[in-house]
């Protein structure tokens, strides 16, 4: 659905996007992940034909953003970081205006307005001024205007930024809900968001593509071998960590055992193996030795750790986004 090849965007002094290539299949939700200033917004603006690329190509639904921008624009719904609302308009009038801009008219337009106001739960504020709406409502009206012409592709720039936790959940659910009908590409610098909503992740940093893969693969890739966290407690007396450690190391396939912490007679270990699935063996070894097995879980790395590992940096704004000064 979306094909990006060697996309580059140069500004006067900086390179915002540096030879990025990726593809997005139809119906997917893709998370565009990176610290602030990584080039997410720029890439999205190129995809939506707001900015022209300096070099490279981007096609949406088979149409090139430079050659056939009109065709691309017809097929794309875009929610910029701040929803593009005319604050002096009423919700209904605003959606009608956007619908007309996107080429809808007549009964078709009425139907779509009813549909999107229902879908984004903004029907109750249809006759309210946009300027009087809360941030959550504004965001939902922004989503409603993005999907009003039933576009093939939805481009959402930080759709949950600035919302409260409840609104964030609602917005995420709505986005997941929309995924069936649209190919969605959403940007964020919040990692759990990607884990929760997206199937596919594209990680960029300083304008460069760092990784593109499914969420699951990325976690597995960063983890390498399987690793397990287990907590052992003594039945009667406190366990002796070194004994447990020795016992665990004897199990075939175990390559490394680290005692992570020890309190109140319990001890927590991280066990790595090269063999694959060894959790059964671990459990039996512990129980057979007369200890209690309090906890046994795979230590999946959070995407956060993956991200840090991949970008090799701390997760703080690397380059502050250029502050747009009022002229």
């Amino acid at each position: 659905m979306i094909k990006v090849k060697d996309l580059t965007k140069r500004y006067a002094r900086t390179i915002a996007v540096d030879h990025i290539s990726f593809e997005v299949d139809k119906g997917q939700i893709v998370g565009f992940l990176g610290p602030n200033g990584a080039g997410k917004t720029t890439t999205m603006r190129i995809l939506t034909c707001f900015l022209p690329p300096s070099s490279g190509t981007a096609t949406v639904a088979g149409f090139d953003v430079l050659e056939q921008p009109m065709e691309v624009k017809k097929r794309i719904g875009y929610l910029p970081e701040t929803p593009p609302l005319y604050l002096e308009m009423e919700t209904g009038d605003y959606l009608r205006f956007v619908g007309k801009l996107k080429g809808l008219s007549g009964a078709d337009l009425d139907k779509r307005i009813d549909y999107v106001t229902g879908r984004c739960s903004v029907a109750d504020v249809k006759n309210k001024l946009l300027g009087k709406l809360s941030k959550g409502y504004r965001q939902r009206v922004g989503l409603a205007q993005a999907i009003i012409h039933n576009p093939d592709v939805l481009v959402l720039d930080e759709p949950t930024a600035g919302l409260d936790p409840k609104q964030i959940n609602e917005t995420r659910d709505l986005i997941k809900d929309l995924a069936g009908d649209h190919t969605i590409i959403l940007s964020t610098h919040i990692l759990p968001e990607v884990e929760q909503t997206c199937e596919q992740v594209i990680i960029i940093n300083k304008g460069k593509l760092v990784a593109t893969d499914s969420v699951r693969n990325l976690q597995a890739r960063a983890r390498g071998a399987e690793s397990v966290v287990l907590e052992v407690a003594g039945r009667k007396a406190a366990v002796e960590p070194s004994m447990v450690q020795r016992k665990l190391e004897q199990i075939s396939g175990v390559s490394r055992v680290v005692c992570k912490q020890q309190l109140d007679g319990r001890a927590q270990f991280e066990v790595e193996s090269q063999k694959g699935f060894i959790r059964g063996d671990l459990a039996r070894a512990v129980v057979d030795s007369g200890w209690d097995l309090n906890e046994l879980r795979p230590s999946a790395m959070s995407l956060e750790e993956v991200f840090l590992q991949l970008t090799g940096s701390e997760l703080k704004p690397i380059e502050a986004e250029p502050v747009k000064e009022p002229v």
């Binding site: 603006r45 939506t48 034909c49 707001f50 009109m70 624009k73 017809k74 794309i76 875009y78 910029p80 970081e81 701040t82 593009p84 609302l85 005319y86 604050l87 956007v98 801009l101 996107k102 080429g103 205007q145 009022p326």
Partner: peptide, 13 residues
Amino acid sequence: RNGTIELLATSPI
């Protein structure tokens, strides 16, 4: 100022 120019510029018009 309001960013609505992005809406106009990304609409098929």
